[in-house]
């Protein structure tokens, strides 16, 4: 719905860009309200069918050293709404996220995006198809400037082909157009004053903003945010929330993993709850949070563990292990630990 947008200039470039032509703004069904209306009156059983699913996953499993980290029977994500994926620590949310986006390969199961099977589709192809993710620990390219980070996000750049790269006259015009689009997004995310800074010099919250803005450069239909609020200071939180909501207003679908329950209640239209690798409940935020299964899962997560494991040292360790897993430096065993 171009008319809904804040910046009229964005529409021009959006229409010019081939990858963005696929953007959902041209679909009647993607009006946020239509998507939301589709959710009304649905049952809250796990795996309930949605009227207009953008993403469907079935029978997804992933095992680490004998432990089933993910075992999702069925899940559909409604188009044009904000869906939250929540669950206690170690529920397999991030692993599930990786499976959906092609960053990890499931042992079994299949998934469809816009009706297209993503079996054996690489992570980069998934992104080009319109399903773009961010990371729990932001992956801004700290040795590139903020503007270069943004430019990297644009797809279909002629200058990114080796044969054309050394001939600047071939790609200079496109680079200008990409830069224009990047600056608009930076302005919108209030990073325009930082465009020449190295991304490594940004604060945690600014990195989250940059990563989100950069993801938008790809022209996604479905934005997948892995803990967008983690490590963000409260002052920036409100503005981040606003940005996530505005994605929906522009017709994009959002799926995000989050621990911050206030945020989940505040912005999500639909909540999916995972525990021990399975989806145990889904539904509108208020209904889900009152659901006995969910309460049990959150309490049960702590009933299960030995009292010593609630030691702050161990919690710190979990975080460390997560960091290790994100960087891939300490090997997968960290993830195994995490998934336990």
């Amino acid at each position: 719905m171009p008319a809904d947008r804040d910046e009229p200039t964005l529409d021009k470039t959006t229409l010019d860009k081939a990858p963005l032509d696929k953007a959902p703004s041209h679909r009647a069904a993607t009006d946020g309200k239509a998507g939301l209306a589709g959710l009304a009156g649905l049952s809250t059983d796990p795996g309930v069918a949605k009227p207009d699913p953008i993403l469907v996953a079935t029978g997804m499993t992933r095992t680490f050293g004998g432990l089933k980290a993910v075992d999702v029977a069925h899940l559909e994500i409604q188009r044009g709404v904000i869906t939250a994926l929540i669950g206690p620590n170690g529920a397999g949310k991030t692993t599930f996220f990786n499976l959906l986006t092609g960053f990890d390969r499931p042992d079994a199961g299949e998934r469809w995006f816009n009706g297209r099977s993503l079996k054996r589709v690489s992570a980069s192809r998934v992104a080009r198809l319109g399903m773009v993710r961010t990371f729990q620990l932001t992956k801004v390219l700290s040795k590139l400037t903020v503007l270069e980070n943004m430019r990297l996000g644009a797809t279909g750049q002629l200058g990114e082909k080796m044969w054309a790269g050394w001939l600047p006259f071939l790609w200079r015009d496109q680079e200008k157009e990409v830069t224009g689009r990047a600056r608009e997004l930076l302005t919108r995310f209030k990073l325009d004053t930082k465009e020449d800074d190295f991304a490594g010099a940004l604060s945690g919250g600014q990195r989250k903003l940059l990563e989100m803005a950069r993801a938008l450069m790809v022209g996604p239909e479905l934005v997948m945010l892995d803990e967008p609020m983690a490590g963000v200071n409260p002052a920036l939180k409100q503005s981040l929330l606003g940005h996530v909501k505005s994605l929906r207003e522009e017709g994009m679908t959002v799926l995000f993993v989050e621990h911050d329950m206030d945020m989940v209640r505040d912005i999500s239209d639909w909540v999916v709850v995972m525990a021990q690798g399975q989806i145990i409940a889904e539904g509108p935020p208020d209904a889900v949070m009152a659901d006995q299964r969910v309460i049990d899962a959150y309490l049960g997560a702590h009933h299960d563990v030995d009292i010593t494991e609630l030691d702050p040292e161990v919690v710190a360790l979990e975080v460390e292990a997560e960091i290790g897993a994100e960087h891939g430096s300490t090997g997968a065993s960290t993830t195994e630990e995490l998934e336990r």
């Binding site: 986006t101 960053f103 690489s122 992570a123 980069s124 192809r125 992104a127 080009r128 773009v132 993710r133 961010t134 990371f135 992956k139 801004v140 390219l141 700290s142 040795k143 590139l144 270069e148 430019r151 990297l152 996000g153 797809t155 990114e160 950069r214 993801a215 450069m217 790809v218 891939g328």
Partner: peptide, 18 residues
Amino acid sequence: RVLKSIREDEDAVRSLGK
């Protein structure tokens, strides 16, 4: 630019569709 980004973090580059 893509090469230098891969050097720094290839998953970030992959997530952007390269």
